[in-house]
């Protein structure tokens, strides 16, 4: 069998923004991936805080100082938005997988639901857990 001739293929995402205009469906898909990855920073912060609590008063004092500072508040608030966005977008994926919501207008509407839903659920969650 002859070896296939090597072809220099373009590397994704070469289509954006040169040949493809970003729209709600693709922007909301991209945001799903971005929020999913961004949350890892918060996961690291939470685990540091938890292992510090398990270790000593001194270790906890430092981790808790960071976690409850304005920086901690900012990270937790942003990642709460990222979490709710990723949560809603994930539910949307399950809905798509069940072969629903793929008409263009519905798909675009669901993108708005993810963005607006996350923005509404974030302050509600903060109020609930305080």
């Amino acid at each position: 069998m002859t070896a296939p001739k090597p072809v220099a293929r373009p590397q994704s995402p070469f289509m954006i923004p040169k040949y493809y205009r970003l729209q709600m469906t693709s922007a909301s898909s991209f945001a799903t991936r971005a929020t999913g990855h961004a949350i890892i920073v918060t996961a690291a912060l939470v685990v540091w805080w938890l292992v510090a609590a398990a270790t000593s008063d001194q270790a906890f004092a430092l981790a808790d100082l960071v976690a409850t500072s304005w920086f901690g508040d900012l990270v937790f608030t942003l990642s709460l938005w990222a979490f709710w966005y990723h949560f809603l977008a994930g539910l949307r994926h399950l809905y798509y997988d069940a072969l629903h919501g793929m008409e263009i207008r519905t798909a675009e509407l669901l993108g708005w639901v993810c963005f607006i839903g996350a923005t509404v659920l974030t302050p509600i969650t903060i109020l609930l857990v305080q």
Binding site: V47, L50, V51, A54
Partner: peptide
């Protein structure tokens, strides 16, 4: 790390 912390606590 998280599992260790939970187990220890």
């Amino acid at each position: 790390t998280g599992i260790f912390a939970i187990l220890k606590i």
